[in-house]
Amino acid sequence: MRNPYEVLGVPRTADAAAIKSAFRKLAKKLHPDANQDDPKSAKRFAEINQAYEIIGDEKKRKAFDRGEIDAEGKPRFHGFEGFGAHPGAGAAGSPGGAHFENFSFGPEGFRRAGGGTGARGFGGGFEDILKDVFGAAAAGQGGRRTGFGGMPFEAEDMHQPAGRDVEAAVTITLAEAAKGGTRRVHLPTGKEVEVKIPAGLADGQQIRLKGQGLPGPGAVGDALVTVTIAPHPLFERDGANLRLDLPVTLYEAVLGGKVRVPTLDGAVELNIPPGTSSGRTFRLKGKGLPAKGATGDLLVGVRIVLPKEHDIELDELMRHWRDAKPYDPRRDME
């Protein structure tokens, strides 16, 4: 995946508000609901969601800027610090005087193939590393295992967990949160799995995938997938309800009429009564998000929008109206 800053078209110095604004503009432009005839828009929409998932989150953004994760949120491998990663460490005969020892693994467990002082940074902890990483495979006969240099140690000394959970994240659309669906998710283990998204999932909720974590001697951990719901270009979430800012013309507000209103299930008609003021809210029952025992509503707020072009006739009409029938909508504010 491309650099998330390039995907959203923002510099690395952009603040959180600028990043969110850039994402919302692109999401509105490339949302699949508005580009049903363009298959490329869905791929591009997924790309900007992935980019926002990285740099729209403060912790992930810092981790990406430090080079700890890549553009897909996967950890970057930086090697082990103990292997000569600090001044003074090196091969035999180097100024540091340290060298690496060779090890082999066979029926008798781990064996040292060469002598020496060992690599600096290991100290007495190297045997513990071998136990943690290779303990399950290095089991000997009779419940005994061989440790560093062939030294035996008892199986009960291996305090290794049964398995470890891993964490991943996925961003879904508002429609997927409402109706459910499936998504492919990359796990830190390297696997790519298909995750079922249940209808009514809340933002930040986790899905547990049994047995998709890291293995241990007795069991395998789980994968915890945190779900983020991407901002929608039209709807704002308010619990189980959705809010929509609906632009109407001046004559629709004054004279009333039927207007088309988008919902997650398709457009419906809303009857605007005559004399509707800007800011009035209409409730469409059951057009929100699924919730326990019920479904939320769609709250439609009216916003009167004047024509972009300057209209002389409208100016004259308003002057006549102002002089003939003046009124003060702010009189109760004093």
Rank of each mutant, 00 (worst) to 15 (best):
Leu8Lys: 09
Ser21Lys: 03
Lys29Pro: 04
Lys29Arg: 08
Lys29His: 10
Asn35Leu: 13
Arg44Thr: 07
Phe45Trp: 15
Phe45Asp: 01
Glu47Pro: 01
Gln50Tyr: 12
Ala51Asp: 13
Ile54Glu: 13
Glu58Val: 14
Lys60Asp: 12
Lys62Tyr: 12
Arg66Asp: 01
Asp70Leu: 12
Gly73Val: 08
Pro75Phe: 15
Phe77Asp: 05
Glu81Arg: 06
Gly88Arg: 10
Ala89Asp: 11
Gly90Leu: 02
Ala92Gly: 12
Ala98Ser: 14
Ala98Phe: 08
His99Ser: 14
Asn102Pro: 02
Phe103Leu: 13
Gly109Cys: 09
Arg112Gly: 12
Ala113Thr: 13
Gly116Ser: 00
Thr117Ser: 01
Gly124His: 12
Glu127Met: 10
Glu127Phe: 02
Asp128Leu: 05
Lys131Cys: 00
Phe134Asp: 12
Phe134Pro: 00
Ala137Cys: 07
Ala138Gly: 04
Gly140Cys: 11
Thr146Cys: 04
Thr146His: 05
Phe148Glu: 14
Gly150Lys: 09
Met151Cys: 11
Pro152Phe: 09
Glu154Asn: 05
Ala155Gly: 01
Ala155Leu: 04
Met158Tyr: 02
Asp165Met: 12
Val166Asn: 03
Val166Leu: 15
Glu167Asp: 07
Ala168Lys: 04
Ala168Asp: 09
Ala168Tyr: 13
Leu174Met: 11
Gly180Cys: 12
Thr182Ile: 09
Leu187Ser: 07
Glu194Arg: 11
Val195Asp: 06
Lys196Leu: 15
Gln206Gly: 02
Ile207Val: 13
Arg208Asp: 11
Lys210Arg: 05
Lys210Ile: 14
Gln212His: 07
Gln212Val: 15
Leu214Gly: 01
Gly216Leu: 03
Gly216Gln: 10
Pro217Tyr: 10
Gly221Asn: 06
Leu224Met: 15
Leu224His: 04
Val225Lys: 10
His232Asp: 11
His232Gln: 02
Phe235Gln: 03
Arg237Gln: 08
Asp238Met: 10
Gly239Trp: 13
Asn241Ser: 00
Val248Glu: 08
Tyr251Ala: 14
Lys258Tyr: 04
Val261Tyr: 09
Thr263His: 07
Leu264Ser: 01
Leu264Lys: 09
Gly266Lys: 08
Gly266Asn: 05
Ala267Val: 14
Asn271Ala: 13
Ile272Val: 03
Ile272Asn: 15
Pro274Lys: 15
Ser278Cys: 04
Gly279Leu: 12
Arg280Asn: 06
Thr281His: 08
Thr281Gly: 10
Phe282Lys: 02
Gly296Ser: 02
Asp297Ser: 10
Leu299Ala: 05
Leu299Ile: 07
Arg303Phe: 15
Leu306Trp: 07
Pro307Lys: 03
Glu309Ser: 04
Ile312Pro: 00
Leu314Asp: 13
Arg319Ile: 05
His320Ala: 12
Asp323Glu: 14
Ala324Thr: 07
